[in-house]
Structures are given as structure tokens and as C-alpha cells.
Nucleic acid binder design. Structure first.
Lengths: 209, 209
DNA sequence: CACAGCGTTGAACGAGCGTTCAACGCTGTG
DNA sequence: CACAGCGTTGAACGCTCGTTCAACGCTGTG
């Protein structure tokens, strides 16, 4: 309602990225039109080309931005001196929060393959860095015996899949808060499902309904 | 190499679906062209319209086919009289197998939203049926105390996410067989990650590398 | 008041793609 | 040999969408 005060150019770029991320999530990269991205911001599509060279650059910037956020998170988690299971738990909680509340539920889900090879390589390199960090935490847990032995790569893929998939069913208007989802996922993905007879349940907040 | 013997019409339809599913997975629905789907089968795009009314109908048929396969699996698993954890394990193993070896790694991953509302509703109804079946198994495990208490809906989402995400990183030419992936995922998603001190590890095949 | 430049507009272009369709060959039948 | 019909072709159409660009208003400066 308030007549938007003129935005600095950098802010405008971020506005565009958010609109684009939302459109890409709903329709996919090829399905979302440049006009659609612009209209959501009440600007013309021609104007977008003042801020970005082309549609691909917008997609690239979306991924770049998401990775900035996620790699910063990873660094944070690595730095704190806690046990692997605490680290993993914190990582999942924060990932879900960032994904749903800051990244328009888009992060790593949108068509990477739509990028041309040079840009694609850059993004993949950074995504791999994130993967490695995640695997490292899992490996540490296995080495320490906190986690069951297994293939850390596969566990990492499973965790990433579970979390990224949230964007497919999450409804911001629905009853589930990003907080509650994060808790439930951290509980399950770190604590596990099966309870051996007589095993004490790990500390839980009042059982989520 | 062998000059393909003339295929019956129904077989030809399935060939098309497989090619389409592969193309959709790589490029997304809007990114994949009708011509691309046809060329992979060495036919012209015009010819596709002898078998399907339009591109959307191809997408619809892909989902329909996937759901046929998956709902049949669900029925199978429900019918067998075993414990919830065994059922869940079997479901995951078979799901991964079907997904990677039969469904061109495509199942539920491709842009549902690209379907027009009437078709979309039909697919969503069947997908929900699958979800309900999965949740039911999880609920039974929780009721029986085999599984930790929690929200079965969230656990089901996490499992589906982990499994469907496989299509994003699986490489048929890579070292991992669909079998190995299924085992690792079933181990993790059913057995869990965390080991309490002194807890016996659940039976595992020789620790996967 | 003149000027400069940033941000914006809206029309236009051109390519790509989904879809249509008239025509064609091949196969089996009478 | 004539005919029918299935499966196929390839060209053409029309629409959508990404991209370009000349022109315009608004704001602040000298």
C-alpha cells in the first residue's frame, strides 16, 4: 500500500531475484516467462534487462545467492565445537528455515541444467563444496560411533533430498510453520525412526502432532 | 542395430512415454521439445500426434503410468503380513528399483503443475492415495512402538523426498547400482542414523563402502 | 533554466516450438 | 491388379516469448 520509496539498484536486483525464484519454483525455468517475473513486481519486462543481461543470468544469480547463504551456514556450523549429531541437527534446522523463509523455497531445486556449461560448472563446484561439508560431518559421526556405519555420501544425498523436497509440498499459508517442519525433520533425519525395545527416546519437544 | 521389427501400436506408445520421461527429466516439461522426444526414437514430431493428442497428454500418460506401477507396489506391500518396519523397508527397496530401472528416474519428479486443472486433479488424487498408504504404514509402526512417536505425515514426506531426489544425482553409468542405493536408503530411512551407546546395530549386509 | 543521466517504457523483431494437415508408401486383402 | 487403411512424412502456420532499442520523464546539479 505505502507507495514504494525509490529502491537502490542493488535492492531492486534482489527483488527481481525473489520474484524470479518464486516463478521458477512454480513453473520451472522454461515454464516461467520473463514477463511473469516482471509483472509480479509491477514493472515491464523490458526493464528487467536494465538489471540483468538475460534470463539465464537471473537463474544464475538465484543459484549464486542461495549458495552464498547455504555455504555461510555451513561455515558457521563447522566452526562451532559440538558433536557431529548436534552439528547435523543444527544444519538441518537452519537449512529448512533459510529455505522456506528466505529463499522462496527454491535453493537447489530449480533447473540447474538450464544453465550453459560455463555457468553450470561454477554452480556445481559450489554445490559440491556444500555436499562435501555435509558428508564430512556425517563421516565424523560415524568415526566417533555416534552414527551407524554406512556410506556418508548416500546419507548426505538422502538428507538433502528430504529437505529440498519440502519445496514441493510446503504451503506458506498452511498450518505447518517452517520451525515445526525443521524440528520434525531434524528429529527424524538425525534421531532415526526405529526404536529398539527398551531404548530411551531421544529428548523431544512435546510430541509434535 | 537389429532393424526394429514393426511394433504394435501399444508398444509404440510406451516407447514414446519412455523417451518423453527421459527428456522431461533432463530438461523439464517446458524445456523438452516434442521434436526432441521424437528424434530420440528416430521418428518425426508430426508422427507423435498419431499416438497422442498433444504434449500435455504425453505428460499425463507418464504420470499415469508411474502411478500404476507405484500403486500396484503399494498394494503388494500392504497385502503381505509382516511388521511395519519390514513393510517400509520393502517399499523403499522396491520403489528405488522401479524408479531407477523402469521409470527412467522420473516418477513423481516432473512438473505436475504443467498439467491443466482437470488432469492435475486426477493425478494428485492418486498420488495422495500413495501418500496415505505410506503414512498408514508409518502410523502402524508408531502405534506398535517399533517407530518413535512423531508426525507420520512428515516422516512420509521425508522418505518420499529422499527417494525422489535420487533422480537428481543418479547416473546409470556410475558405479552405484540401483540395488546398492536401495539398500543404503532402506538402512538409513528405516534403521536411522544415531546409535545409542551399547545398542546393537541392526542386521546389515557387509558394511557398504 | 539548461543539461545530464538513470530508470523506465512500449513497441517491434525474430526464433523456436506446438500443432495441423494433405499427401504418400507400404502391407495385406478380395 | 485394385483397393483400403494404417503409419508416416515434411512443410506450413501461428503463437509465445526472449531480447533489443529508440525515446521519454524525472531528479538533481551548475
Amino acid at each position: 500500500m505505502a507507495p514504494a520509496p525509490t529502491l537502490a539498484s542493488a535492492d531492486r536486483r534482489i527483488e527481481i531475484l525473489k520474484s524470479a525464484a518464486a516463478a521458477f519454483r512454480r513453473r520451472g525455468y522454461h515454464g516461467a516467462s520473463v514477463d511473469e517475473i516482471a509483472s509480479a513486481l509491477e514493472m515491464t519486462k523490458g526493464n528487467l534487462y536494465y538489471y540483468f543481461r538475460n534470463k539465464e543470468e537471473i537463474l544464475y544469480a538465484c543459484h549464486e545467492y542461495s549458495l552464498d547463504v547455504l555455504l555461510a551456514l555451513l561455515d558457521d556450523v563447522r566452526a562451532d565445537a559440538s558433536t557431529p549429531d548436534q552439528k547435523l541437527r543444527r544444519l538441518i534446522l537452519a537449512f529448512v528455515h533459510l529455505l522456506l523463509d528466505e529463499l522462496q523455497a527454491t535453493a537447489l531445486t530449480i533447473d540447474l541444467q538450464a544453465l550453459s556449461p560455463p555457468l553450470l560448472r561454477k554452480i556445481i563446484a559450489r554445490r559440491d563444496a556444500f555436499d562435501r561439508g555435509l558428508r564430512e560431518i556425517i563421516q565424523q559421526g560415524m568415526d566417533a560411533g555416534t552414527f551407524a556405519p554406512g556410506n556418508p555420501k548416500m546419507v548426505a544425498f538422502a538428507v538433502m533430498g528430504a529437505v529440498n523436497w519440502i519445496t514441493k509440498w510446503y504451503d506458506p499459508a498452511g498450518p505447518l510453520t517452517s520451525e515445526a517442519i525443521g524440528q520434525a525433520f531434524a528429529d527424524y533425519l538425525v534421531g532415526g525412526l526405529t526404536r529398539m525395545p527398551g531404548e530411551p527416546a531421544p529428548p523431544l519437544p512435546p510430541p509434535a502432532r
